[in-house]
């Protein structure tokens, strides 16, 4: 029963190994893809490295499990980097063209602005969701308070303890 109800101390959770292995393989694949990109298409890799630099930096300092802020910045930055990457592809995948684009402040600032938008989104979305949840909770508490007051009035039950706040 002990083995079924709760794993023995020191024993690995069945899901832990299974979850870590794909993640490691994914990181390895990402590294392989990045390596292949840097080797086979160095100008494109240089362009993307500059355009996605804010995301990569946050990826290093983000301590939140799953690094949601960095991921959001990278996704937004990537969305803004698609157009310069195609421009580089269309004009020839050379280092000169890549440096021209990197030197174009409009291109770089657009990609970085998109990363900043991703950061802002990752920071604001939890606040908005929390506001929605708190509003829902308060409305429910008000309903419960009303129901309790009706019961107390109808049945003479003792008025309950002080109204607890939503927290």
């Amino acid at each position: 029963m002990k083995a079924v109800g709760r794993p023995a101390r020191g024993a690995k959770s069945p899901g832990a190994g299974g979850g870590a292995a794909p993640r490691r393989s994914l990181v390895w694949l990402q590294g392989l893809a990045c390596g292949a990109l840097a080797t086979l298409a160095t100008p494109l890799a240089a362009l993307l490295a500059v355009l996605l630099l804010p995301g990569f930096l946050v990826l290093l300092i983000d301590r939140v499990p799953g690094k949601p802020v960095a991921r959001a910045m990278l996704l937004c930055g990537a969305a803004a980097s698609v157009a310069p990457a195609r421009q580089l592809w269309d004009h020839g995948l050379s280092m000169d063209n890549s440096l021209d684009l990197i030197a174009n402040m409009l291109v770089v600032s657009g990609a970085w602005a998109a990363a900043a938008a991703g950061w802002l989104l990752a920071e604001l979305a939890p606040v908005v969701v929390l506001l929605v949840l708190e509003a829902t909770t308060r409305r429910r508490l008000a309903e419960l308070r009303g129901a309790r007051a009706r019961l107390a009035a109808d049945w003479g039950l003792a008025a309950a303890e002080d109204d607890p706040g939503p927290g």
Binding site: L124, P126, G167
Partner: peptide, 29 residues
Amino acid sequence: ERARLAANARARRALATTLGHEIALGIGM
């Protein structure tokens, strides 16, 4: 239920953070 709602503030905040981040990722995607 009122006691449960009062005691779930921390969980609500954690949920809001998770959901917010998921939403941000979804928008980025």
